[in-house]
Amino acid sequence: MKIEQVAWADPEAAALRARQRAEIAERYGTPDSEPGVAPSAADIAAFFVAYENGGTAVGCGGLRYLGEGIGEVKRMYVAPPWRGSGMALQILRGLEDWALGQGWTSLRLETGDAQPDAVRFYTRSGYERIPNFGAYTGVESSWCFERPFGSDRNFASPTR
């Protein structure tokens, strides 16, 4: 398995994001449950794709810079056959490594109340629930989380 930084417009990245949005639409029963501005090439600082050993793209995640050293995880996704394999954690740690390398001090994210699997994953990965921020403020179905980068934690990715 390898994780590579790619352009937002990369066809495999776009296909993974489309799969992620289709799954979210199915869970929430609406074609667009994005409370805020959807991420785009203009506001995503970095986007990564995970490839299985045969070279097939099976997961992704990106980062949006919010300012003041804070980034937001966007479009985190792992194809269903690869869930539980540790790939999601490797993608997340890769995002954290990249953010730390930029001098960012924490990462935030938003997930929803219909995604208990995501909530479990992020809390097990060291993220703690915070009051909703930005466009998620006042959206009851949105749950926000944050993980500050402290000197007490080694953020080295297990893939490196």
Rank of each mutant, 00 (worst) to 15 (best):
R21S: 12
A22V: 07
A25S: 15
A25C: 08
A25E: 09
E26D: 12
E26R: 14
E26H: 09
Y28G: 07
G29P: 07
G29Y: 11
G29T: 10
T30P: 05
P31D: 14
E34I: 13
E34Q: 12
P35K: 02
G36V: 11
V37L: 14
S40V: 07
S40L: 09
D43R: 03
D43N: 15
D43P: 03
A45W: 13
A45H: 11
A46R: 09
A46E: 07
F48K: 01
F48E: 01
V49P: 00
A50I: 05
A50Q: 06
A50V: 03
A50G: 09
Y51F: 15
E52S: 03
E52A: 13
N53M: 09
G55D: 10
V58R: 00
V58P: 00
C60P: 01
C60L: 02
C60S: 15
G61Y: 02
G62D: 00
G62I: 02
G62M: 01
R64A: 01
L66R: 04
G67V: 09
G67E: 00
E68S: 15
E72Y: 06
M76K: 04
Y77I: 03
A79L: 15
A79I: 11
W82H: 14
G84H: 14
A88C: 08
A88K: 03
L89F: 14
Q90M: 15
I91R: 06
I91E: 06
I91W: 07
L92H: 09
R93N: 11
R93D: 12
L95Q: 11
E96P: 07
L100Q: 13
L100S: 14
G101N: 08
G101H: 11
Q102G: 08
Q102I: 09
G103Y: 01
W104E: 02
W104K: 06
W104G: 00
T105I: 07
S106I: 02
L107I: 06
L107W: 09
L107E: 02
R108T: 12
L109D: 00
L109A: 03
L109C: 06
L109N: 00
D113H: 12
D113C: 13
D113M: 10
A114P: 04
A114L: 15
Q115Y: 02
Q115T: 07
Q115H: 12
Q115G: 06
Q115D: 07
D117G: 15
D117R: 14
A118P: 03
A118K: 09
V119Y: 04
V119M: 12
V119Q: 14
R120C: 03
Y127D: 01
E128L: 10
R129N: 05
I130C: 05
I130T: 05
P131C: 07
N132T: 05
F133S: 00
G134E: 08
G134A: 04
A135T: 05
Y136N: 06
Y136M: 07
T137M: 04
E140Q: 13
S141H: 14
C144F: 09
C144M: 09
F145P: 00
F145Q: 00
R147T: 06
R147E: 13
R147F: 02
R147Y: 08
F149S: 07
F149G: 02
G150Q: 04
S151V: 11
